[in-house]
Design a protein around this nucleic acid. Structure first.
Length: 910
RNA sequence: GCACAAUUAGCUCAGUUGGUUAGAGCGCUCGCCUGACUUGCGAGAGGUCAUAGGUUCGAAUCCUAUAUUGUGCACCA
């Protein structure tokens, strides 16, 4: 009996220690589970991508809420024996991050982005983002999240950049990405365009003015923005309305110092009942007017610039901000006796979500995603849509939900999703900020457009040498064995159809020998170039050769005297060499160790601590050839890249597959895509969920996820939103310090149904911290009572215990079913109830009597029953309260059939 | 204005395809201290399931209307 059970459960002493143990075990990574024989390599998969938190700051309780839910599901499925992957990552959150950074920069140093070069400014934000990221990652660990850190991604990292390049390119080539001038949502404060979904409307009272343009023009018009009338090019009236006799007439006049010419047009969109029944058309500064102008082929006249200032007009108008110009124009109207009336009207003004600035509609050349037009569908793998079928992106987004391939839970969100998609307009994806993926388009001096290029290279291992067989270290090198030569020929066969343009090899004789055999096999006549950077271990003298930190065996990768840092640098040099200098279809021959490390680095592992010899090793056996296609900037001289960056949702939209290695056809992509579940808040259904469907169906030909389990918003205990202005924020870490993560997780799961907002009350957390302690004491009682139980013998249960086991079995059946239906809120509550009120209050009390007065058979039976019940309860509670259950598990003697780590254990078998 | 949702015990919420006396946690009241539980145990009070109609043998559950709250969309010149 461990002494720690003598005092109450102390989460702070336990949690970090347990998390470290899990992390060091490596079992967050499904590949490690397989390697250790804990998961079958062919087992069904279950995968979730963590909605990547924005690197704008720290995590809040809303994130904890998501983490608790997802981690519970992940742990459950892992315990079912599935290959289970929870993909971690963060989002660069372009505008949000940049504007937050700019605010702080201004506050601290009174400087703005204009004080730096683009590169300087970018790296400053990047530093800010990375520091936030590291806080976020430690917070996720605090929550007990069993995320596979080996696969950590960032929307702005190098691999995601390739995915963005490729996605953009493919969509451009399919005509789904295009560049066009059009009226956009211009955020004057943020100095960028934003998409329709980043607009927040604010109700305001404004004044509607009724007036005439000039005494010569008889038509009265009404407007809340008379200053924009300087940019009018038409008057629209209903074809059957009061003003119909004027249709076709043209008027020219001076309006507040600007010459204006308007044509009267008839358009059914004009409501003859509203206002004066006539509408002054300002194509450059209004969305509806723009549309009308397109229909009637009206000229465009921009009169407001990017700073929200008037570009034309009389003194007091030109150069002024719109609000001031408006006053001047109204005064002028009164003065000219053109003013007729004014009236207060309720209006909602478009503002930018992130900066709070007012949106000024402006014409601008922008990049768009075409959601309306049909194209020929390029995949054969999506249910219900054939290759070559004519569809639009909108059709795809609707189809997968309507056909039930993607299930949205709760169902009612189907409707809002559908409604939103149906009203979707083309998506403006370019932004005029620095922090983000720069639009992957390069212009030459004539303005011709160039897209990213692809460069494929190949890697092979040298064939087996005598050293590999006999481990004859101590001599400089050994020749290939027969098998080694056979392996080299095998590589050659595989490369025959690839038209290798150049062969590079490490300076080692066995690699050179391999390269020569391959060259002969594929008929390559060119030079076999020796590349020092492909160097292997210095076989002759191993003294001073470092080890790979995570590796138990000699890594065979370091040159003599080379530090870990040098080695990573060397790999990066090769990478740069390939991207910048190597020809398309080059072949690289080196040691397995080098090549595996190379590919690990390509897959985002930047530090030596993250490298394991085994990760990629499987790809280099028996003459296997591994290829890598880099998607790179075009190399032609004098090209200038488009200055805009992409909407952050462009890269987040690729998340379900870019994290799994797309555009390469990786094993991860094959195994874990489509992902099983997504757990987003309802507020990002249009921003994120639908975009992931858009990209995934078009680019991969698959749905991105099978189930969307929508969660509500977390509110404070009085039902108010958490906000800075209310100062009602709660730091999850403080809650954890006080009550422990397990208690917080329970509070965030129990009684919270999908899609429903939840009021967060610390009282609830407190209650579950009592429960953690209760479980602790139950364990204490049972462990003390059962120390003598023969845990590996077949049990002999009394009829009473068989009855209790029957009840327990029924409970487990029930909760297993409910877990599969994602009803965590029910399962956790039922377990709580069973453990406290059945196990503790009834069974334990009953046991005391049995132990005192029962027969020896009954006592033996009950002891065994309690012991087994504790094991079962620890397992079933583990997804919800991972720490306390694991801590107890670690303190117990376990039968041979059970695993050392509860996290890796199997869910009770029915 | 349109759409969607919510309205169940003092508070926060469950209530699966309509089926006995409507559940949980917290809080509250009373009692207890029992071989794990300084965070324990037992007992109890508390609900015309927003309102009004309707369907049904039977409604918290289905339908209609109203009210209140919330969210999204459109708010028009």
């Amino acid at each position: 009996m461990n002494e720690k059970f003598l005092s109450p459960y102390n989460p702070t002493d336990t949690e970090d220690k347990i998390y470290q143990m899990w992390e060091q075990s490596g079992f967050f990574n499904p590949d490690e589970m397989i390697k250790a024989g804990l998961t079958d390599a062919q087992a069904e998969t279950f995968s979730i991508v963590l909605p990547p938190p924005n690197v704008t700051g720290q995590l809040h309780l809303g994130h904890s809420f998501e983490d608790a839910t997802q981690d519970a599901m992940i742990r459950f499925h892992r315990m079912l024996g599935k290959r289970t992957l929870w993909m971690p990552g963060t989002d660069h959150a372009a505008i949000a991050t940049q504007s937050k950074f700019e605010k702080e920069l201004y506050k601290k140093e009174k400087k703005s982005r204009h004080d730096y070069s683009r590169e300087e400014f970018f790296s400053m934000i990047e530093e800010f983002a990375l520091s936030n990221q590291s806080t976020i990652l430690s917070q996720l660990r605090k929550m007990g999240a069993s995320l596979d850190w080996d696969r950590l991604c960032f929307t702005l990292d190098e691999q995601r950049k390739e995915a963005v390049f490729e996605a953009f390119k493919q969509m451009y080539e399919a005509g789904l990405v295009y560049r066009k001038e059009r009226v956009v949502n211009w955020d004057v404060k943020g100095q960028t365009t934003i998409s329709d979904d980043e607009i927040v409307r604010e109700d305001r009272i404004s004044t509607m003015y009724t007036f005439k343009y000039s005494h010569d023009c008889p038509i009265e018009i009404a407007s809340t923005r008379p200053e924009t009338k300087l940019g009018d090019t038409a008057i629209a009236v209903h074809p059957d309305g009061r003003w119909k006799s004027y249709i076709g007439k043209e008027y020219s006049f001076e309006f507040a110092g600007e010459s204006v010419t308007v044509t009267v047009i008839g358009d059914k969109d004009v409501d003859p009942e509203f206002g004066t029944g006539a509408l002054g058309v300002t194509p450059a500064h209004s969305f509806t007017d723009w549309d009308m102008a397109q229909r009637h082929d009206l000229p465009l006249k921009q009169i407001i610039n990017e700073y929200g200032k008037m570009m034309v007009g009389m003194e007091g108008v030109k150069g002024e901000k719109v609000e001031k110009a408006r006053e001047a124009v109204v005064a002028w109207l009164r003065d000219q006796k053109l003013f007729i009336d004014e009236e207060d009207v309720a209006q909602s003004i478009a503002t930018a979500e992130r900066t709070g600035g007012i949106i000024e509609p402006l014409p601008k050349m922008q990049w768009w995603i075409n959601v309306q037009s049909t194209f020929s569908y390029p995949h054969d793998s999506l249910k219900g849509i054939k290759k070559g079928q004519k569809v639009s992106l909108k059709d795809l987004m609707l189809h997968v939900v309507e056909s039930g391939q993607v299930t949205i839970m709760p169902e009612r969100f189907d409707k809002s999703y559908r409604h939103w998609i149906e009203n979707l307009r083309d998506w403006n994806i370019s932004r005029q900020i620095f922090f983000g993926h720069q639009v992957p388009v390069w212009y030459d001096k004539d303005g011709n457009l160039n897209l990213p290029e692809e460069k494929t290279v190949y890697f092979v291992r040298h064939g087996e040498s005598e050293d590999n067989v006999a481990q004859l270290f101590g001599r400089p090198d050994s020749p290939l064995t027969d098998l080694g030569r056979e392996q080299a020929r095998e590589s050659g066969k595989k490369l025959k159809s690839e038209e290798i343009t150049k062969i590079y090899t490490s300076p080692y004789p066995r690699a050179i020998e391999t390269a020569n055999i391959i060259a002969k096999e594929i008929g390559y006549q060119g030079e076999i170039a020796i590349l020092e950077d492909l160097h292997e271990i210095d076989q002759g003298n191993l003294a001073g050769t470092p080890l790979l930190p995570k590796n138990e065996r000699l890594p065979n990768v370091f040159k003599k005297g080379e530090s870990h840092k040098d080695f990573i640098a060397r790999i990066n040099r090769i990478k740069e060499f390939i991207k910048n200098e190597a020809e398309e279809n080059s072949l690289f021959v080196s040691h397995t160790g080098f090549s595996t490390c190379f590919f690990s680095v390509l897959n985002g592992k930047e530090s030596i601590e993250d490298l394991t010899y085994a990760d990629e090793h499987q790809h280099f056996q028996n003459g296997e050839v591994r290829s890598k296609t880099f998607i790179i900037e075009p190399k032609e001289n004098g090209l200038i890249q488009d200055e805009d960056t992409l909407d952050t949702w462009f890269s987040s939209g690729l998340w379900s597959f870019s994290t799994l290695g797309w555009p390469e056809k990786t094993k991860d992509l094959e195994d874990y895509h489509p992902t099983s579940l997504l757990n987003p808040g309802y507020e990002i259904l249009p921003l994120w969920v639908s975009r992931m469907i858009l990209f995934s169906t078009f680019l991969v030909g698959e749905i991105p996820f099978e189930t969307v389990y929508i969660h509500g918003m977390l509110r404070d205990k009085d039902g108010r939103k958490f906000s800075k202005s209310l100062n009602n924020g709660i730091d999850p870490l403080e809650v954890i310090d006080q009550y422990g993560t397990d208690a917080l997780r329970m509070a965030l799961i129990i009684g919270v149904t999908p899609g429903q907002d939840m009021s967060f009350d610390l009282q609830k957390v407190k209650a579950y911290s009592k429960f953690a302690n209760k479980l602790w004491n139950i364990a204490r009682f049972i462990i003390t009572e059962t120390e003598s139980v023969a845990i590996n013998n077949a049990p002999m249960y009394s009829s009473r215990d068989q009855e209790l086991l029957g009840q327990q079995k029924a409970l487990i059946e029930e909760i297993t079913k409910e877990m599969n239906e994602h009803k965590l809120y029910l399962v956790a509550e039922k377990l709580y109830h069973y453990v406290w009120h059945t196990l503790a209050d009834e069974i334990l009390e009953e046991s005391k009597t049995i132990f005192e007065t029962g027969s020896q058979e009954d006592i033996t039976s009950r002891r065994r029953f309690l012991y087994e019940t504790l094991l079962t309860m620890l397992k079933t509670l583990h997804p919800f309260m991972p720490f306390v259950t694991e801590e107890i598990w670690q303190s117990m003697q376990k039968p041979e059939s059970e695993r050392d780590i509860l996290m890796t254990s199997l869910w009770p078998i029915l």
